Simulated assay, not measured.
Amino acid sequence: MGKHKAVRPDIDAAAEQAGPALGSRREIEHLPSVLWEGERVDMLATGLYGGGNGLVALTDRRLVFFKHGLMSQRLEDFPLGNISSVEWSGGLLMGTLTVYTSGNRADIKNVAKAQGAALSGQLRMRLATKGPAVGAVASPGQDVASRLGTLDQLRAAGAISDEEYRSRREAILNSI
């Protein structure tokens, strides 16, 4: 992701995983100031949202869009429990990550293809593991099949390790 000063182990690891094209050094350095106590950063990407380029951070609790400018700061977050679905549409190099929450829609544009695919896959996995919404009726076979499919996509995108893949696959199969 380019050179940045060490911030925190979880943020540094996510920045390293994001690769050299990320380039949101200022946002990365100020990210700890907008995180909740004990919140862990899992993935980072850059994107365009609400008219500004900023940092997209997936944590263990929420998806955060953070822009830290010289004169202003913008923060919008989407708690994972409020996200109903996620959509990824990728072009040749960039794409759009669409997050749906309680009847609302947020389009984060100009996300690098690899980071966007990995973010959407990780979000889908988390949505699949939180179970169906109250009142939803799903066929157990379809639910397991979709969860396994998402898991395969995450491994193919490099968002999870082979060990994590095996562990999560076993957990999904044991839930039958």
Rank of each mutant, 00 (worst) to 15 (best):
G2R: 05
A6T: 08
I11H: 04
A14F: 01
G19S: 02
A21G: 00
G23N: 02
H30K: 10
V34F: 09
L44V: 11
Y49E: 14
G52C: 10
L55W: 14
L63K: 07
F66Q: 14
K67S: 10
K67P: 00
M71Y: 12
S72R: 15
L75Y: 14
L75V: 15
D77H: 14
D77M: 11
N82S: 10
I83F: 04
S84D: 15
S84A: 10
W88D: 11
G90N: 10
G91L: 03
L92N: 07
L93P: 01
M94Q: 09
M94D: 08
L97M: 12
V99T: 06
N104W: 08
R105T: 14
K109T: 04
K109N: 06
V111W: 04
V111N: 06
K113M: 08
Q115F: 00
G116R: 07
A118T: 01
L119G: 06
G121V: 09
G121Q: 09
G121H: 09
G121N: 11
Q122L: 12
L123T: 05
R124W: 06
R124A: 02
R126S: 00
P132Q: 03
A133P: 03
A133S: 09
V134S: 07
A136E: 15
G141S: 04
D143P: 00
D143C: 00
L151C: 06
A156M: 06
D162N: 13
D162L: 10
E164L: 12
Y165T: 11
R169D: 13
E170L: 15
